[in-house]
Nucleic acid binder design. Sequence first.
DNA 1: AACAGTTTCAACCGCTTTATC
DNA 2: AGATAAAGCGGTTGAAACTGT
Length: 236
Amino acid sequence: MDVKKGGSVVQAQVKLQKHNEKEMGMRKGPWAVEEDTILVNYIATHGEGHWNSVARCAGLRRSGKSCRLRWLNYLRPDVRRGNITLQEQILILDLHSRWGNRWSKIAQQLPGRTDNEIKNYWRTRVIKQAKQLKCDVNSKQFRDTLRYVWMPRLLERLQPTSQALEPNQSGLVLHASSSLLPSNSDHSIERGSDLWPGFNNQMLLEQGSGGDLLESLWDDDNMCFLQQLSYDLQMK
DNA sequence: AACAGTTTCAACCGCTTTATC
DNA sequence: AGATAAAGCGGTTGAAACTGT
């Protein structure tokens, strides 16, 4: 792809596209209810994909990109909205510690959640809390604290309720043991494993399962614990 | 009640990757 | 093989909602 040369082909294409969008009076900003209805109805009849033609054929004055984003992040029937459960929070932390800011990849492990939502969660909650602890969220210290000390503690607290759930052989399983011990392996997420069957996709889908034990990773109790941990580490 | 500061999250942007011709 | 279009990704922004004074 020729993107490095000054005044590249791609840049010219983008300029042209922007010009065309302007010419056509493309709408931007929040979607109106009528626009949502048009998009939903169009996709119900014609299906997803070919977003530029969706925008054009449905009579929406929106870019294909905008239609795609609106559908994937908001209008899609299987999209889950609202509070991120404790299990999801733990899974996000675990996956992020291994994959970094690969939001889309992480989102694939959380049914119904979008990359955008996970990214927002990370930026607004995790980074904020790390700041409170005077930690850099990408520092080894923060990651190790989460992974080797805090998460085992949380999992321990969750386990009694988790184990009450039926194992889901087809679902995702977080290998508690492997993910919490130093490892270079990227295989902690597998399908159909039963190392720790209580913690799987099924559990994530069941609203509130285990969540009544803890509402959030960032409650007072946990924050005190983390602050103490952070202090202890600094004293070393 | 009014205002200021903070938080949240939907939407946009720029870039890269993938698909198609 | 190269050009172009479309899709996808991660970072960023800004308006609305919320909270504190």
